[in-house]
C-alpha cells in the first residue's frame, strides 16, 4: 500500500504542506486579495484544507485499536505528522485572518468578528501552538508524561469541537449550506464516534478480563 510505503513522517508532512500551499496560492491567484470578501473566502478555503488532517489525527489511535491493519497502523504511526499537516494548513488561515485584521479592520469588526468566535479561536490557536511545540522532543521533555497527555487530550478535543461545531452552525444556523459542510460535519461525527467506540470496547474488554483490572499479584 502506497500510504505505508511512501507517505510517512516528514515526507508525508511536506507532501501535504506543499500541496496545500500550492492549492492556496492557485486559489489566491484567482481572487482579489485587496478585497475583504475574497480574503474571507481564503480563510474558509484554508480551514477546508486543514480539517481532514485534524480528523485523521483525532481518530488515529482508535482506528488502530478497532481495525488493526495497514491504514490503522499508518495513521497511528503518523499521528504526530498528521497534526503537523493540520497546523501548517491552519498557519495559512492565521495569515489570512491577520491580513483581514490589519488591512480591513472595519469590515472584520462589522462582518466577521463575533465575541463567540474569539472565545473559541484564541484558545484554539494557543492549544495548537502548544501541541505543535511540545511534539518536538526537547520541549516535550520539559513536561511530565501526565501533563503532556493532558495537554494533547484536552487540546485535540478542543480543536475537534471548534472545527466540528463550525460545520454544525453552517448546517443548522447560517443556512448557506454547501455539500462540503455535510462531509465535514459527518466526518467529525465519525472521528468522534470511533473514539467513543474504541473507549467502550476497551472498557468492556477490561471488565471481561478481571486479571487486567487487578493487575498481577
Amino acid at each position: 500500500m502506497i500510504l505505508s510505503k511512501w507517505a510517512n513522517g516528514y515526507r508525508l508532512f511536506w507532501l501535504v504542506t506543499v500541496t496545500t500551499s500550492i492549492a492556496v496560492v492557485v486559489k489566491m491567484g484567482g481572487l482579489d486579495m485587496a478585497s475583504p470578501t475574497d480574503i474571507s473566502s481564503m480563510i474558509q478555503f484554508s480551514v477546508r484544507c486543514s480539517v481532514p488532517w485534524l480528523y485523521l489525527a483525532f481518530a488515529a489511535s482508535s482506528v488502530l485499536s478497532l481495525f488493526p491493519g495497514s491504514f490503522g497502523g499508518w495513521s497511528k504511526r503518523n499521528r504526530r505528522y498528521l497534526g503537523f499537516c493540520y497546523a501548517s494548513a491552519m498557519a495559512w488561515q492565521l495569515t489570512f485572518i491577520l491580513m483581514m485584521m490589519t488591512g480591513h479592520w472595519t469590515y472584520y469588526s462589522d462582518e466577521v468578528y463575533a465575541f463567540g468566535d474569539i472565545i473559541v479561536q484564541v484558545p484554539g490557536y494557543l492549544f495548537l501552538t502548544a501541541m505543535t511545540v511540545t511534539s518536538f522532543r526537547p520541549v516535550r521533555q520539559l513536561l511530565s508524561a501526565r501533563h503532556w497527555n493532558m495537554l494533547h487530550t484536552i487540546g485535540i478535543y478542543f480543536l475537534w469541537g471548534t472545527v466540528w461545531s463550525t460545520y454544525w452552525y453552517e448546517l443548522y444556523y447560517y443556512g448557506d449550506i454547501q455539500p462540503i459542510d455535510y462531509v465535514y460535519y459527518w466526518g467529525g461525527i465519525l472521528a468522534w464516534g470511533l473514539r467513543l467506540w474504541a473507549w467502550a470496547r476497551a472498557r468492556s474488554e477490561l471488565a471481561a478480563d478481571p486479571l487486567a483490572q487487578t493487575g498481577p499479584a
Partner: peptide, 14 residues
Amino acid sequence: QLELIVPFLPILMT
C-alpha cells in the same frame, strides 16, 4: 454565551 454548548448537547447525551 452558553449558546456555544448547544451543538454538543447530543454529543454529550450519546
